[in-house]
Amino acid sequence: MSDNQKDLSRRQFLKLFAGTAAGVAFGGAIPQLINLGNGVIAIPASEGYLLVDTGKCAGCSSCMLACSLVHEGKENISLSRIQILQNPFKNYPDDISMFQCRQCTYPACVEACPTSALYVDKENRNIRTVDERKCIGCMQCVEACPQTPSRVIWNFEEHHSQKCDLCANTPFWDGQGGPGKKKACESVCPVSAIKFVQEIPTQYGSVGYDVDLRGPIWQKFGFVARRDS
């Protein structure tokens, strides 16, 4: 299934579930929903998103190392909530892919969780995150993520799911994280190929999340400034 097929439009998100069907669909997640009246129930949108520029990324994987470091206190790229994949034998721009959590307006991972362990965190501007204490390890959220590879990470060392929280909870870093504050991956990226924004990106396909973060200076380095192939 392609990204295009999987993604839902913003309109779909706003008017997705009506009446009692939402309660069934979301199980224990009902308290996270907003009743818009007229039978329309919605999930509040995250107030923060990570955008990337795969054409700018240098493939150093420092974002993965930083993510693992501040969240887990150790280096393990398998536990990183952002994934950088490379094929050194492919040519630019098909040699690198960046996969960050989209903080979907319609979060299938939240819907799939039977225990509300994966929830919308109102205290942190509605990011979609995991309460690891509630996770029973069913991995339904991992499977439910419509993106490939799944943006919900299975922590096989501690046996629970985890996902990008925009650094709202970084027990191993004294940087003030969370929406509107520092993000480890964005902070460490040496070429500024990751950017935090508050506006909701276009949910259809990847164009809203994989954007042009280059500028005139990028040309000074001998690269093309515009997005190209």
Binding site: G59, S62, N91, Y92, V191, V224, S229
Partner: peptide, 20 residues
């Protein structure tokens, strides 16, 4: 067209990968 390319953990990205 090309991108910078760096080894694991590199802050410099001194190499490149190109379209061709």
């Amino acid at each position: 067209s090309s991108r910078p390319q760096g080894c694991f953990g590199c802050h410099k990205g001194g190499c490149r990968r190109r379209t061709d």
